[in-house]
Amino acid sequence: MSKPSFFSRTRGWWRSHEAVLLVVLLAELVFFSSAGRRFGTADNFFDIARHSTEIGLLALVMTPIILTGGIDLSVGSLLGLCAVVFGKLWRDGGCSPGIAGVLTLGLGTLAGLLNGGLITGLRLPPLIVTLGTYSLFRGLAEALTHGADTFTDFPASFLFLGQETWTGLPAQAWVLMVAAVGFWLLVHRTTFGRAFCAIGWASEGARYAGIPVRARVTLAYGLAGFVSGLAAIIYTARLGQAKADAGTGYELFAITAVVLGGTSIFGGAGSIHGTLLGVAAIGVLSNGLVHIHQPREVAGMLTGFLLLLALAVSVLPQWLSSLAIRRRAAQGSQSSPPSTP
């Protein structure tokens, strides 16, 4: 008699966590567009893109790390260090912004590989290693500037990257888009990138399956370092200044976006498009609140609420279907023979 439940019968993309988040994002957009006079303007979406780029980049690169079951708490501090080094190379070292940028990316990569090397080489937990480098990188940035030195007056050609538009979009939005496509292809369409998921699912199993686990994990952290450097350059161009406190707290925003995007904090499951939706949901929320004249601290509160809600809603179908199965099993054992759906 009993019908298979609605949730257990339907299988489709729209039942996924990402779909739930997409609905949340659309709801945000509809709500803020109707409530805020200037929310729906192109200018405003440019603002959102500009303000989300650095966090977006960090969240993108955080995804493969969390997929392997790791975490990187040092990205925000590394952003600060890279910004300061970039400023120093340009102002005191006499490098052009281009050369300084390349060197900064190199430094970022090395710092990331240091994380990766310590984690895989010494088999230390990522949380501990990156907690250490979190302090180390920020401390270095402060030491380099004595906490007070600020680098400014960058040439307009460099500031273009952070403040102007290029072929219709903010210049840094293109960087974010290229990074997003790149990471999506890497994680979802290459055997190389699928290793991240496999490692997070079962590290030993991945090793027996022939995946060079340590090399892949080291690479993930190296990549995080590289992208932190890139985010530092964009941050500097956007603000027109580099200071030791650049990117304070960004690691937590990035992790929040990744987890909101449906990536399991234990590793093994998640997606790049989910992360992008997470970044967008947070970015739109904090921008939209300004448009309906709500104070900024509400954004933090609502982000937390959103995170918990999204997690709850995404496990709801599973929970309901398991409930249904249990009930059916209970009914089945009492009276009717099991039906075949």
Binding site: D245, A246, V290, P295
Partner: peptide, 25 residues
């Protein structure tokens, strides 16, 4: 009168709020 500002010391926050206000008109 709109009143807003950073709650934590982040230099980027002041700029973000300014940019939001520009868009807000």
């Amino acid at each position: 009168l709109l009143f807003d500002g950073p709650t934590e010391p982040d230099p980027a926050k002041q700029n973000e709020i300014i940019e939001n206000w520009i868009t807000l008109g």
